[in-house]
């Protein structure tokens, strides 16, 4: 089974740690777990405040490795100090990005039409999937932007084992939202329940590396009682399709 990780990162550090997470660590971990591809962000992201530098390092780090697809950060140019939203989307695609990451609370913006509509308009125009973390974009906000930009695919990650009651209707109502089953989605019988609801096409394998142990996510998917076809779609097929559609 191919595994394509929708929720992982490297190159950054976090409070309490003394070194950055190297790309080699990510590659080693992928090898250990049989993961053949990864959508990579600069993570952990809390101390990475220089978006331009972080994105350039991410592109450079991914370039030698075909299995690593960059997912750079984009920020609304609401104060006029950044490249235009169109330019950011174009730069991402030119550097092989398969998706982009929005992180409002780290980059000090809020999800409001009057502030960030130009960003989502530009991303939708390029059909560039958006990675959103539930820790920064709550379910209300996720639903609102998924409704306003229905042709823009979203990868919703950082979900919690307590989220099932919100997650199922979110996916059912917004087919452009795709959920990562990486940390901290650890629900007993949750995956098979969502598959039985016909949501397999909206589920993505993810690990939560470097914060979480990747083997945990692999075990969750590999051992869930779902059909081989659904398992393979979740493991890689769905994300491969999303990434392949970027810029088209």
């Amino acid at each position: 089974m191919d595994l394509f990780d929708a929720q992982c990162g490297a190159l950054a550090t976090e409070p309490g740690r003394t070194r950055r997470v190297a790309v080699d660590e990510l590659l080693q971990s992928m090898d250990d777990c049989g993961i053949t591809g990864a959508l990579v962000r600069v993570a952990p992201g809390t101390l990475e405040t220089d978006v331009d530098l972080a994105n350039r390092r991410l592109f450079d780090a991914c370039k030698p490795h075909d299995q690593l697809i960059p997912c750079p950060v984009v920020v609304p140019n609401s104060a006029g100090d950044l490249p235009s939203e169109e330019q950011q989307a174009a730069d991402a695609l030119a550097n092989g990005a398969g998706a982009v990451w929005v992180r409002p609370s780290i980059d000090d913006w809020i999800v409001a039409d009057w502030l960030c509509a130009p960003l989502f308009d530009a991303l939708e125009a390029k059909h560039l999937p958006v990675f959103a973390d539930a820790g920064m974009i709550d379910f209300h906000t996720m639903a609102a932007i998924a409704a306003k930009w229905p042709r823009l695919p979203f990868i919703y990650a950082g979900l919690h084992y307590r989220d099932q009651r919100k997650l199922v209707p979110l996916l059912r109502n917004f087919p452009n939202v795709h959920a990562s089953i990486g940390s901290n989605y650890t629900v007993h019988s949750g995956l098979e329940h969502m598959v039985a609801q016909g949501l397999a096409k909206q589920l993505l394998f993810g690990t939560g590396f470097p914060e979480s142990e990747p083997a945990a996510a692999v075990m969750l998917l590999a051992c869930s009682p779902v059909s081989d076809a659904d398992r393979q779609a979740i493991a890689a097929g769905n994300l491969v399709s999303l990434v392949a559609g970027a810029g088209r």
């Binding site: 084992y161 650890t186 629900v187 007993h188 019988s189 949750g190 995956l191 142990e213 990747p214 083997a215 945990a216 996510a217 692999v218 075990m219 969750l220 590999a222 051992c223 869930s224």
Partner: peptide
């Protein structure tokens, strides 16, 4: 029955 046993074994 809250968390997934396979996921917890993975760690």
């Amino acid at each position: 029955n809250v968390l997934n046993q396979a996921q917890q074994l993975g760690k």
